[in-house]
């Protein structure tokens, strides 16, 4: 007994046990159950083989949802990685006055609830000529726009909500990464006559790469599984012509609203595969799987 307690071999397993248990119970279990359900029709209580998956292939709305989610993910990556990194560098430089104030301001939106933020954005982007955004473009002489009824403007509102909310969080990640870079490197570069831009290119970007990969990975996942923002912006799952329909939104519609749990699970499995494939490719390209010699 004593041996077991003091065993160097057993200790690591004991330490990782809580995590393993959680994953098994709340991840592997449900995924497995979901895979089984995706071959069933829960309304009729029967096994239907691959027919749920066949239906997905020909389901126009599902593909609209995929397109929306992918488009959304792409633009969030495009906006939410370079800009927060830049802001983090600025916040970290001595030129910046009152950096802590700005840090708090940037981070504040992340503390608000999406439900509240979505509702406020919905009213800001209202159709009426008194809605904030319509007043704003009215200053430039433009006519009121039905923001949330058009594909492009609706997408803009969604993206703005996302950037407003997540910029601060990503800045925090990058700040942490940047601050862990040894100051000597910059000093040495300074002595060698490197410009600030060269220092940023040659020192900061390569050395915050682990942070970048982390942010990239969670952003891909977050982008592809986005739901609540769209749900709140359009006050429910019904955006005109599905301009706000996302993959998870479609899963919610099928599983919860229409009670077709089997079909919803099939949608979920497809989402899982999609996220896995994209992230595996991304991690492979970034060399995360290579042995840690470098």
């Amino acid at each position: 007994m004593k041996k077991l307690f003091y065993s160097q071999k057993a200790a690591p397993y004991v330490f990782v046990l809580p995590f393993v248990l959680t994953v098994l119970l709340f991840w592997i279990g449900p995924v497995f159950k979901g895979i089984l359900l995706s071959f069933q029709d829960t309304m009729k209580n029967q096994w239907v083989g691959l027919s749920n998956y066949q239906r997905i292939m020909g389901d126009r709305i599902f593909w609209i949802a995929v397109k929306n989610s992918v488009k959304y993910t792409f633009f969030t990556l495009l906006l939410l990685i370079p800009f927060p990194m830049l802001f983090a560098v600025l916040l970290n430089s001595h030129l910046m006055k009152r950096p802590n104030l700005f840090k708090s301001i940037y981070f504040l939106p992340a503390l608000t609830s999406v439900v509240v933020a979505g509702t406020v954005f919905r009213l800001m982007f209202g159709e009426s000529d008194q809605a904030l955004m319509n007043q704003l473009i009215g200053l430039f002489g433009a006519a009121p726009i039905k923001w949330l009824k058009r594909g492009d403007t609706g997408f803009f509102a969604l993206l703005l909500l996302c950037c407003w909310r997540w910029t601060g969080v990503n800045i925090m990640y990058f700040l942490a990464g940047i601050q862990s870079i040894p100051q000597e490197l910059y000093e040495a570069a300074d002595i060698d006559g490197a410009s600030k831009w060269q220092q940023f290119r040659q020192i900061t970007i390569p050395l915050v790469k682990p942070t970048t990969i982390y942010v990239l990975t969670i952003s891909i996942y977050a982008g592809l599984s986005m739901f609540l923002e769209s749900f709140m912006l359009w006050k429910g799952n019904n955006s005109p012509n599905y301009i706000g329909m996302t993959i998870v939104g479609y899963l919610y519609r099928q599983g919860i609203e229409k009670r077709a749990m089997g079909y919803a699970c099939a949608v979920g499995i497809v989402l899982l595969i999609l996220v896995m494939v994209v992230n595996l490719i991304q991690l492979k390209v970034n060399g995360t799987f290579d042995s840690e010699e470098a």
Binding site: K149, N238, S239, P240, N241, Y242, E257, K258
Partner: peptide, 14 residues
């Protein structure tokens, strides 16, 4: 429910 959905999210607005 599905018919209503299509009517109010696509047909009428379009």
């Amino acid at each position: 429910p599905s018919i209503n959905n299509v009517m109010v999210t696509e047909v009428l607005t379009n």
